[in-house]
């Protein structure tokens, strides 16, 4: 025998279930009067924020091609200069008019989620190389036992995407387009997420 290591074990994940909105976006499901507003709703920026305003729309699909109408999506991203609004951000101070975090329950009839945000700047990888502008997504829902992490990259950033150290980790290059949003009208991007089979989105263990 040797000495025990005495690390604790992480609490096991469980599905968020079909009623995740009660806890995370109660006003959205008609439970009014408990919280003034749903956390993470509305634009990630407030007046005076730097950067290019963008809209992200998307839908999460299951392995049969059906839209999930009960998913909860969260995003986390840097500001226009590439700084995170977090105490762990040590390189500089993030834009105080930009939260960096948002949450969308999706449309209950179509499942489409929408985020009003700004286009993030580049963030350095641990070895100093630059990661291309990206937004971290986290998806939970009924039937998803542990939250799924992925990243959205931008289609017009071809050069930066080509040298992105995280995209480079994806061995099967035909899967890379699943991480790159499609540009729609104006400043709107579409980022659909496919949980399973044909066109399955790349998910990360981060």
């Amino acid at each position: 025998m040797v000495q025990p290591l005495h690390y604790f074990k992480e609490s096991a994940s469980q599905t968020a279930g079909p009623y995740v909105h009660i806890g995370c976006t109660p006003n959205f499901v008609g439970i009014n009067g408990v919280f003034a507003q749903d956390l993470g709703s509305g634009a990630l920026y407030s007046e005076g924020a730097n950067g290019e305003r963008i809209t992200i729309r998307g839908t999460v699909y299951d392995g049969a091609g059906n839209a999930l109408k009960d998913a909860l999506i969260e995003i986390w991203q840097a500001d226009a200069e590439g700084f995170y609004n977090s105490p762990s951000e040590t390189r500089g101070t993030a834009d105080q008019n930009f939260s960096g975090w948002g949450r969308s329950p999706g449309n209950m009839d179509t499942g489409e989620f929408v985020f009003e945000t700004i286009k993030p700047g580049k963030v350095p990888f641990k070895d100093g190389r630059w990661m291309a502008p990206h937004i971290t997504f986290w998806i939970v829902a009924r039937g998803i036992n542990i939250g799924l992490h992925t990243r959205m990259y931008f289609p017009e950033e071809e050069e930066a995407n080509a040298t992105d150290p995280v995209l480079a980790r994806v061995e099967h290059k035909p899967r890379l387009p699943t991480l790159i949003a499609k540009k729609e009208d104006g400043n709107t991007y579409r980022f659909d997420i496919r949980l399973q089979s044909e066109g399955e989105t790349v998910f990360f263990d981060i």
Binding site: D62, G63, A64, N66, L68, A78, Y84, E89, V123, P124, F125, K126, M131, A141, R142, G143, I144, N145, L148, V166, R169, V170, R175, L195, Q196, S197, E200, T201, V202, F203, F204, D205, I206
Partner: peptide, 15 residues
């Protein structure tokens, strides 16, 4: 129908 079939891509945490 809501489980990825491909392996997760491992990534040591970045910023």
């Amino acid at each position: 129908l809501r489980s990825p079939q491909r392996a997760l891509i491992s990534l040591e945490g970045t910023k």
